[in-house]
């Protein structure tokens, strides 16, 4: 299945958001996730299923003003 991960098209075997983070090598406790523009809390990631073409954002703490 192809999805959009942080603006890049990615081919993934993952069926859930939690699986996607593991597959793509993210440190799950250190990131925040959104699916199609909606925040997905950490606890909901295993139950959040991915569909073809979904837009996933995985964000980390960065410098800001």
């Amino acid at each position: 299945m192809r999805i959009d991960l942080n603006g890049q098209t990615v081919e993934t075997q993952a069926r859930t958001l939690a699986d996607l983070l593991a597959e793509q090598g993210f440190e799950a406790p250190c990131v925040a996730t959104a699916l199609n523009g909606d925040f997905i809390a950490r606890a909901l990631r295993p139950a959040t299923r991915l569909n073809e073409g979904v837009k996933v954002e995985v964000l980390s703490p960065m410098q800001g003003g």
Partner: peptide
Amino acid sequence: ITVSLRREGVAG
């Protein structure tokens, strides 16, 4: 201090 959220770069 103020901080933000971004797609992780190399220095994350």
